[in-house]
Design a protein around this nucleic acid. Structure first.
Lengths: 187, 187
DNA sequence: GCGCACCTACCTAGTGTTAGGTAGATACGG
DNA sequence: CCGTATCTACCTAACACTAGGTAGGTGCGC
């Protein structure tokens, strides 16, 4: 049977959902506590400070996302497949969770973040670019330099598409961008 | 000579800068007051509520941005020029102001915004898509449908690129995306 | 002496965070 | 197998502070 989520997990789940809809400065320990059914002070039993929550959420999000991406070298000669696989991971995040990518939100408000939280958002982007670069290099004939440029382009477009989608309240926007990105492929 | 900015303008300037670095929930009337050299209560003399500031900032930002874009039909047969001109407008916003696009930030935290503010961010995106669609249709042989898809793609990529740039602390990221977008052109 | 552009002084509600406490489970020495 | 100790998972109460917002006053240029 599915193990019941611990209170710690529930805090992380709630915090992630809240950050992804309202931003880091849009959630409070009391807000989380109310949802989880606990007192605000008890949240600090699990996470000493608010930024500890931010860091934990971001780390878990990054780990899960890269796990979901899998092996970047698994797309030998299938450039388009690689791009589609990558974009699908974000589509899941947007459609299943109904929210923008956590790090799109954090990245947008970088200047208002505790430095450690901003740093972990940055790590998400760096690891994503590394994954993409590897996947693109393994699946197509592009040069390393081109792979780098394509990686940045794809990541930027996908993150922007999620923001546009939610602001316009229109999920087709994301799919439109997904279609355009697939056309980058050389196969 | 350059007319001295009014206190009202200074409030708007400061609010814009703060929102663009820290998000809507990352600035306060007290914070603005301190920068402008005024008491917090006096901010309410110009703008009754905080969301009035948000709306005014967003409206002014949108108006200025579209003015800077100019006439979308001015790029007859110069597809690439049209795209470059559009991307340059955002580069100015990023490099000159040193900040992400206001509406990228607002769009990212849509769920934590007063509805009127979120609505005005949305208007920014809608008017940008309309401008782009017109510019692309006038400058290239693409169908209306393709122009729409390209418009969404370009806007998403540019907004995402700005977020990536600030989060990674690396301005070359934006220029890389700019280069990739120029390649969309059919001339 | 009217009204614009500000002020002082205050309010209520919420913020993150801490101190100190407690009921119940677990570990262990005699 | 019993009592003492320690740990877990919370709690209440309060801290110092900031949030947005308001009522009413003051100075000053016209």
């Amino acid at each position: 049977m599915a193990k019941a989520p611990t209170k710690r997990d529930e805090i992380l789940d709630t915090a992630e959902r809240m950050i992804r809809t309202m931003g880091y400065n849009g959630f409070s320990t009391r807000g989380i506590a109310k949802v989880v059914g606990i007192k605000a002070a008890s949240v600090h039993y699990y996470f000493p400070t608010k930024s500890d929550i931010g860091v934990a959420v971001t780390e878990r999000y990054t780990e899960r996302f890269l796990e979901r991406l899998g092996d970047p070298t698994a797309f030998e000669g299938a450039h388009k497949k690689a791009i589609e696989h990558y974009v699908d991971a974000f589509r899941d995040a947007l459609v299943q969770d109904g929210n923008v990518c956590l790090c799109a939100v954090l990245g947008a408000e970088t200047g208002g973040l505790p430095t450690e939280v901003g740093g972990h958002a940055r790590i998400f982007f760096e690891r994503n670019l590394a994954w993409l670069k590897k996947a693109l290099a393994a699946s197509s004939r592009v040069s390393a330099k081109e792979a780098q440029a394509q990686a940045i382009h794809i990541l930027a477009a996908v993150e922007g598409a999620m923001i546009l989608s939610t602001s316009l309240g229109n999920d087709t926007v994301f799919n439109s961008v997904a279609g355009s990105l697939a056309q980058i492929a050389d196969d």
